[in-house]
Design a protein around this nucleic acid. Structure first.
Lengths: 139, 139, 139, 139
DNA sequence: GTGGTCTAGACCACG
DNA sequence: GTGGTCTAGACCACC
């Protein structure tokens, strides 16, 4: 379910946290589904249970999972976190936009890049059968 | 010339490196200009000279400065690094674009955000007297 | 009759204990009334009978219920526990009062808060038909 | 500087966290003052450095201290946290107020308790010389 | 010297 | 069985 990258400089527990956040965001792990137990996951990844414990602790602190003593960890309901994430996305976009003058990249050049990115994406999707419908007109 | 942020999680030498890269990129420090001496800068920032030494080492390794034994450190010629930096920029853009479907943000929504960003920027520039000329049609 | 909150950090047996204490205090469960059997309640809440057993044990230890071998558990007479609970209440009040200087909250400000709390409560009661008569001049 | 209470059921790291929060709140530890080092405090309290590490981690996460690698931990500026704490105080007050009808305690009885609490406090202060002036008319 | 991460192994409370 | 805390001891990056 999860693979560690030991060439990654980030701490292991952080990798675990991020991997699970992604799995939860993408819906692979659904609300109230049980997480792998601390010990079993530790064995599976052959790392120390404490490290998993710490990762689960962070996930709980961030509201992604909840722990029930003597039972296990379960994934929380993350509905309503989408707006916050969209906001963060636009903040990331802005920091990129700020760099443009210094890099002598024009607005038109950027938009052209974005457009061609999505054209390529569409092509690739048509080839593979078009299972992921395009997102349109949201928010 | 440089200010450290101790609440920043990154190591100090890295902050120093980045600050100087920025100064060189922006042309504040020009080709063949002398860098502050290791010891004077260490005193000014009240940090360990070893830390400055390490920062200068990284800057030299990355081709931003060159050291002359017994004389000091000098700014390199960074012409020709622009294309590489632009390339990095577009890679960063792509990683952001990849996140969009999952966040239910449409291409149109993004472009509208970018457009309004530049409109605001223009407004602010007209007010302050228009000193930074607009970048147009490059690359 | 009872609902568990798995997002609550407290152990389940403690939740059960508190819920029953409340039911008994509020008079929903009256003197000598029979408690649900350990096994039936365990099934109803889909938790381990041991957990219920432990909860009932605590309730008995605290004098809220009494067990009759082979028959079941029954609600005790809790008359005379009111003064003790009032005393506990005032102790809690005092710990709060002690924090006030540090928080730069004045006595007058607190009393004004309390007053407006009860005014709001009265308003809400008048709207909903006034079923809970106001408590006055006790003790 | 800090004393542990082993008869306390709460985890050690939590006790450490709370003790430091209190010291910072009360101004005993001031902005930018250095915290005892992880290892030295561990020795002083004769507990494991990991436990201190965890406590310091929580304190940093909560914005009470900041860590500089290779240097140490320093206390943050907690100005502006007062309103949040006052708000929490009133929430605690409200939970107490909610219990009153059930306990058959009237509003008047509570206010009389509070008033006499402050009268006693004043008496005690006059005896000891009156160094802590009364807080008045804030917020 | 400092903080930060990780392991190995133990103990406890809960179910 | 589960999560949660703690210890002892190690290693790393940073200053």
């Amino acid at each position: 379910m999860i693979m560690l990258d030991y060439s990654d400089k980030r701490p292991i527990y952080e990798q675990v946290v991020d991997k699970f956040k992604e799995l939860i965001y993408k819906g692979v792990l659904k609300k109230d589904e049980q997480m792998p137990s601390v010990r079993s996951l530790a064995v599976e990844l052959s790392i120390n249970p404490n490290t998993i414990q710490r990762a689960y602790g962070e996930l709980e602190r961030d509201g992604f999972i909840y722990a029930v003593k003597g039972r296990g960890n379960y994934v929380s309901d993350i509905n309503g976190m989408l707006p916050k994430r969209q906001e963060d996305f636009y903040i990331e976009v802005d920091t990129l936009l700020e760099k443009m003058p210094e890099l002598e990249i024009s607005k038109e050049r950027l938009i052209s890049h974005i457009t061609s990115y999505f054209i390529e994406l569409d092509k690739a999707r048509q080839k593979s059968g078009g299972e992921n419908p395009e997102i349109k007109g949201h928010d």
